[in-house]
């Protein structure tokens, strides 16, 4: 037992119960189905803007790119153009690779004592599973999110239909008295999303080092997303919901003429309430790395400090007296005293 994850777990569980009751009680449906989702979107947008603009306002006193390669210097020394970006275009390339492939996470290593011939020694292993799970998690989240756009557009855009086609490639058919898989067709992204988020959670529980540095703020989003995925999967494959009714409801939401769906049970309200909580919580949480990754000074600056001077915007305008000016002032005296000067009248 650990206070950090139990706390987050209990909070998410309480949120689920609350919204389930809210969905089952006719009087509260308006609140949970319409008012809270709108409020959450507004909080998300303004919170997001204010966080990013806060970062934009802060000065960058130093040029601090983290580099993993040779800087451009003498012509006969081979520079690493991407890992030590010298130009803007190299920075852009490096940022794209970081955002799309999580390149720095790919280099993740694990330190452990290893028994070797020369005794116990510290060894660094390449640890790829975090990268795999993170990549799977983020991409399936994106795909699930994009697939949900079918609820917000009518007719459904062709690109979303293509996505659904490829996401539904897994035509597993399995039929028994207890469980029935096959129709509606399985979307692999939803399943992988749940699996990946579960892995990310178990990693925080079972690895003592990671558990030690994990806070409720690390577990809360994981439980939240787990809850969203579980309720979504329940609705699609097990308890079933009236998709057409829900689409009429979501189309109402995006066209500002909301009307509650009839005959849709508590589980759907849990799903959208957890989504609303996620949206509202987003700007004030670590999830803001969505915007933060673009503004990381260790990633988005050129490593060209030897060639161009970085001026700290916080610098007080200092009055400088350059050597040229100094020499101009004292030239005659310096020549008289026999000191070397650069310009001899």
């Amino acid at each position: 037992m650990n206070v950090n994850y139990m706390l987050s777990f209990i909070i998410v569980l309480a949120l689920c119960l609350l919204s389930y009751l809210g969905g089952e009680a006719p009087g509260l449906r308006y609140l949970f189905g319409i008012a809270i989702p709108y409020l959450a979107i507004v909080i998300f947008i303004f919170g997001f803007i204010s966080r990013v603009m806060g970062w934009a306002r802060s000065a960058v006193p130093f040029r601090i790119p983290t580099t993993c390669g040779q800087q451009k210097s003498l012509p006969w020394i081979k520079p690493n153009r991407i890992d030590n970006p010298f130009s803007k275009s190299a920075v852009i390339l490096r940022m794209i690779l970081e955002i799309v492939c999580f390149r720095s996470l790919f280099r993740n290593t694990r330190m452990a004592f290893k028994n070797t011939k020369t005794g116990m020694r510290i060894a660094y292993d390449w640890e790829i599973f975090l990268w795999v799970a993170a990549l799977a998690f983020h991409y399936t989240f994106l795909v699930v999110l994009l697939r949900h756009l079918r609820f917000f557009f009518d007719p459904v855009p062709f690109c979303i239909q293509i996505l659904e086609f490829f996401d539904g490639f897994l035509k597993i058919e399995f039929l028994s008295n207890v469980i029935q898989v096959g129709l509606p067709g399985i979307y692999i992204s939803g399943v992988i999303l749940l699996a990946a988020v579960t892995f990310l959670f178990l990693r925080r529980i079972f690895s003592p080092k990671v558990r030690y540095i994990s806070l409720p703020a690390d577990f809360f989003p994981l439980f939240l997303i787990m809850g969203i995925a579980i309720t979504g999967i329940m609705m699609r494959y097990f308890t079933k919901v009236d998709i057409v009714g829900i689409k009429e409801f979501t189309m109402g939401l995006v066209s500002f003429s909301p009307a509650l769906p009839e005959g849709v049970g508590g589980l759907f309200y849990v799903h959208i309430f957890l989504v609303s909580v996620l949206l509202a919580y987003f700007p004030s949480s670590k999830l803001m790395h969505l915007g933060g990754i673009f503004l990381s000074p260790t990633r988005n600056m050129t490593a060209d400090t030897r060639a161009t001077r970085h001026v700290n915007p916080w610098n007080h305008p200092v009055k400088v007296h350059t050597y040229e000016q100094y020499e101009d002032e004292f030239r005659e005296k310096m020549i008289e005293a026999g000191l070397p000067v650069e310009k001899k009248e």
């Binding site: 603009m53 756009l149 557009f153 066209s255």
Partner: peptide, 20 residues
């Protein structure tokens, strides 16, 4: 940064704009 934020918010509220 402001351009980036505007693009992001535009994508975010696109379903609302489209259905206006």
């Amino acid at each position: 940064i402001i351009t980036g934020v505007i693009i992001f918010i535009f994508i975010l509220i696109f379903p609302f704009l489209y259905n206006l």
